[in-house]
Amino acid sequence: MLERWLQRDKVHAIHKCDLESVLKDLGLLDELLAGSLSCTICGTSIAMDNLQCLFMKENQIRLCCTKIECYERVLSEKGA
């Protein structure tokens, strides 16, 4: 039981209270607020309330919307 707790699987997360400042420092906030960023999987326009996760692909930061099929695709490509 102890071994299970010594090495934990980490789920990396950004809290909503930090999201704006982190996106601003990453240089993504203005585009996001302008509506010019879209989900890498389905192409839906991303806003603050439908941003599910961030990931790196081809050396660029990509965004994923809250749709389950998009989220699962990102999880299966990256997490497994």
Binding site: R4, Q7, R8, D9, K10, I14, H15, L54, I61
Partner: peptide
């Protein structure tokens, strides 16, 4: 096999 832990990215550097 492993328990779960939330790790926060509080800054852009950490996130990157």
């Amino acid at each position: 096999p492993h328990a779960m832990k939330i790790e926060w990215a509080k800054t852009a550097q950490a996130a990157e």
